[in-house]
Amino acid sequence: MTKVTMSVNGTERSGEVEGRTLLSAFLRDTLGLTGTHVGCDTGQCGACTVHVDGKSVKSCNMFALEADGASVTTIEGMANDDGSLGVIQQAFQDHHGLQCGFCTPGMVMAAAALLKENPKPSEAEVRAWLSGNLCRCTGYHNIVKAILAASGQDVSKEFAA
């Protein structure tokens, strides 16, 4: 076992891990941050998406020791300081961007990474960006709508039913 230390949602956290311990397992099992979901565990579905040093990664496809010294943000770090939902989370609720909610932590983390890089993405850019995040429920439409709304764009027209 080796000691690993990283900043998680702004707080320094450490624990003992094996070489093969995945970042997703460290977050969920060692730190108890079960908001990061594990869907496929093979790097396909994106449910486990978190940010490492500001970049979105699939935490099931990265070893915890690779994040030693890094700054990690998970879905638990996305709420406002007073505990209310962050802008992207609120948009998912307002626009019905989730049904079962399994993919949602990964979707929100992916969206946050997109909006940081591209604050006003087009619908096509949002859809392309989500190519690594699978949702089995919504058909993506309301997820795309929520992300566009979170970017401050008017979604009433192009998404009118």
Binding site: G43, V52, G132, N133
Partner: peptide, 9 residues
Amino acid sequence: IGDPHVRNR
């Protein structure tokens, strides 16, 4: 290549 998260690693 792949998706944004794969490209970051």
